[in-house]
Design a protein around this nucleic acid. Structure first.
Lengths: 195, 195
DNA sequence: ATCATATTGATACAGCCGTACCACAACGGG
DNA sequence: CCCGTTGTGGTACGGCTGTATCAATATGAT
């Protein structure tokens, strides 16, 4: 076995380069060359670690998905003996582009989703399964908390609202704070004690 | 004066070609050549009517915006002596990709919005001003109807919900019917008679 | 009829894209 | 020690892009 470099670290370095390019200049500015330059490696190296651009794009999507899942789990783990409302609020906060890092994530993720609308080679599953999982999880919490209304419908409504608010923040139509306010107001209603 | 063609009709023909390409294959598949082929004209003609691709892209955005505004006015005009709730429902129905035509519109519009996130040459105004106008209009109706809660907040919530639902329909996570159901359920609550 | 000009067509060009290919540097097992 | 495997760099190639250039056609006022 000759010299061994940290394969995974290199891949992560390149993927992060792509995410930075996509976040700054848009997904259309992502080329093998621009990614290589941003990651500080040669074009050949990008080709070496990802045989084709399609594989690179896919790897980025997987990494984004995993990172999202981790942030989302970490946020839950940070709560000590949380109420159902706190759990739901934590889950939905992840759907809003609050800090710059989260903003880049949502921007790139949305770019991918739009691409997947028309590109058959790009799997549409992540954009359906991810929210589906989240919706099921919220449904469970709502059902357990005994809120008024059908838990499934309320979960769907919550998720759609959060996503819509997230988009308006992304395009600069609303501040993260005001989006969070609206979301909390909705939760106030939902978790209001039944009369 | 030699032969006279309908300038505006030609421009519309080309723009419609672009919208079809963008709707079918994605905005990344939009090239001067693909648009020309789809519109059934020569590449040179596209160059003739739109000096550069940037101008073409801008013209498309303007046309989409105008069409949206027209559909939206037509929907309102179709209501005879409508209740506030009917007005709001009509306004929001336009935000959902129900028929195929509306679906293409939303798909292309979203592609443009994502592009505008990073491309400074692309005006971000339409993606802010359009929803803003709609939100103000809904605010006015809600205030006039005397619904519970702050009209501005409720209008913002409604719009975000509708947009979120629209997105979930677009990515195939939900049917237009179920999205409309959730929206109506929300309106039921909002317009419920105060006790 | 005819001709100036509005309109359309074919093609050339420079640049960027993804990918393929060739050379070689580093390094650990024999 | 050294050789084959693994990692890295440079560069060439065909194809597609937006744009520019050179012609040709059609038409209606004269």
């Amino acid at each position: 076995m000759p010299r061994t470099a940290d394969h995974d670290a290199r891949r992560a370095q390149i993927i992060d380069g792509l995410v930075r390019v996509a976040g700054r200049d848009g997904l259309h500015a992502v080329t093998m060359r621009s990614v290589a330059a941003e990651a500080g490696v040669s074009l050949r190296l990008v080709q070496y670690y990802f045989e084709s651009k399609a594989q690179l794009m896919n790897a980025v999507l997987e990494r984004l998905e995993r990172q999202s899942h981790e942030r989302w789990a970490a946020r839950l783990a940070g709560l000590r003996d949380p109420s159902p409302r706190e759990v739901v609020e934590a889950l939905l906060a992840e759907a809003l582009p609050t800090d710059p890092e989260s903003r880049v994530f949502h921007q790139v993720w949305t770019s991918y989703a739009v691409l997947a609308l028309t590109d058959p080679s790009m799997a549409a599953q992540p954009f359906v399964e991810g929210p589906d999982r989240l919706e099921r999880q919220i449904t469970r919490v709502l059902a357990g908390a005994g809120v008024a209304g059908d838990p499934e419908t309320e979960a769907a409504r919550l998720l759609a609202l959060a996503h819509g608010l997230g988009t308006s923040v992304l395009v600069g139509r609303r501040s993260p704070g005001s989006a969070m306010d609206i979301l909390r107001r909705h939760l106030d209603e939902l978790f209001a004690p039944v009369p």
